[in-house]
Design a protein around this nucleic acid. Structure first.
Lengths: 163, 163
DNA sequence: AGAGCGTGGTTGAGCGTTCAAGTGACGCAC
DNA sequence: GTGCGTCACTTGAACGCTCAACCACGCTCT
């Protein structure tokens, strides 16, 4: 049992900053979305990911991957959004195990109404603090971290090889 | 009502990466701490912040600031940790409104037992993916974002002016 | 065809977090 | 020194998330 390598000054700064961002940023965005339309950041993201998918639907597991969430969490949230008429669950025609989540027209309209305010908040709470170079660095560093946490995360395939 | 400025490719990459990190990284660290000792990342942080304070105690509001949490959330957690004998609440001698949270000897010992495994996890899940330059960049960028979210966050005073 | 295993998804219980309301204590005005 | 606003914190209820258990289907092997 050797002495652990404690964090040096820069490592500590990076880690503490990330930890703070981690609690403050979602809180700020959640707040904006909640006052704009009783929606959480996660709810928004679920709908946003569906809106970008071919045909505006995805199997639950793929949607879970795209929102970095567990299937369980997603299932609960989809039930909630379904009750509001924004989503619809349908059985997969070929494989009866899979359920697909479809973004309804009402859901799409809600998302479109929310989107401008949301991206504006993303800018004011976050991106506006950074230069173009910072944004580029952050994207690079962020993707390295994501890769470490989940080496075949969908994000990593987005920029790289298209199949 | 002008057309909102949507995110460009780099902005989108940075934002999506941060969003993913935000859910994956705490989950990974929570996991390690939970299996090592039934403690959440937030619990750990509360104790760590106290352990670094003069006399191993802090007023609730300062502890809340140092953990970027609401007073309410902190109060609930302190109650929980108090029941385990790791913390103790005491009234402030001069101002009866303030409560101070003290890290007990048992709490300190628990923290010290958990610390090596935790920093190891911080390294393997996060820092090991980065070069020294990345870490430095991340610290700089992270602090910019923190400043945007809370312009007198304690982190910002740590490196800068003493007093 | 049937057994066994892995996959995809749901559910409910338990716990943690948030939000709004409430409780004292301080401090300033007069 | 009385009133009133603010500050520091606590509490309880509602809501969200996590975890473990579960079900149904498909696939493979025999």
């Amino acid at each position: 049992m050797t002495e652990p390598r404690w964090l040096n000054a820069d490592e500590r700064r990076a880690w503490l900053a990330l930890l703070s961002i981690n609690t403050l940023l979602p809180a700020a965005l959640d707040n904006q979305l909640h006052t704009a339309g009783k929606v959480s950041l996660f709810d928004y993201n679920v709908m946003a990911m569906l809106s970008e998918a071919e045909g505006r639907f995805l199997p639950m597991s793929q949607l879970a991957a795209r929102t970095s969430s567990s299937l369980s969490r997603l299932s609960h949230v989809v039930s909630k959004l379904e009750k509001r008429g924004w989503l619809e669950r349908r059985p997969h025609p070929r494989d009866a195990r899979v359920t697909t989540a479809h973004l309804s027209d009402v859901g799409m309209a809600t998302l479109e109404a929310l989107a401008p305010g949301h991206v504006e908040a993303v800018r004011t709470k976050f991106l506006d603090a950074l230069t173009d170079r910072d944004v580029n660095d952050l994207a690079r560093i962020g993707e390295k971290i994501v890769a470490r946490l989940d080496d075949d995360h969908w994000i990593l395939r987005e920029t790289e090889n298209g199949q």
